[in-house]
Amino acid sequence: MSKHQINPNAWIDLYSDYLFNYTVSRVKDRETAQDLVQDTFVAGLKSMKNFEGKASERTWLVSILKRKIIDHYRKINSKKGQAEVRVNFNQESGEEGNWLEKKIADPYDKTAEDSMENTELGLAIHNCLGKLPQKQAEVFKMKTLLGYETQTICNELNITASNLWVIIHRARTGLASCLKESWF
């Protein structure tokens, strides 16, 4: 029996937001990003026995995801990839995204400092959320990121409003101290 633990049942709850955030900032399209994250989980599942436990589960999944993103760009380029690139305009698809620039990762995209910071911020927040107790993270996500009404959350999770505010308070304090070093 292996010493390191791996538990795919919890993957989606634990890592999907983090991985999704990572992907969206690189492919600029929610749909594609979702597919890639999905593929990553499945690929992770298949190569689970190769996981050596040298890194954390998340790091390992991120490394798979990176390959997936690269593969994605290879794939969308390969259709005309064999031909040499003569024009910088592609009329085949006839809609937005004709420009060849949109078909590759934009190298300038990450040089703008704020965009970089925002990418990191998203990851930092998901990272810190992952460190909170699951209930707190869940309530905080629903309330803050998804913007649900207090009443809706209470009904869904079967808690009282004051209970909710206590959870929110703890989550906020926890998050603030987690983000403190680099973001305040």
Partner: peptide, 19 residues
């Protein structure tokens, strides 16, 4: 701190999956 946290979490570049 709480205000800062709100500002950070409401940044448009934070992506998450909806339910």
């Amino acid at each position: 701190d709480n205000k800062t946290l709100t500002k950070l979490t409401s940044s448009p570049n934070i992506h998450y999956l909806n339910a």
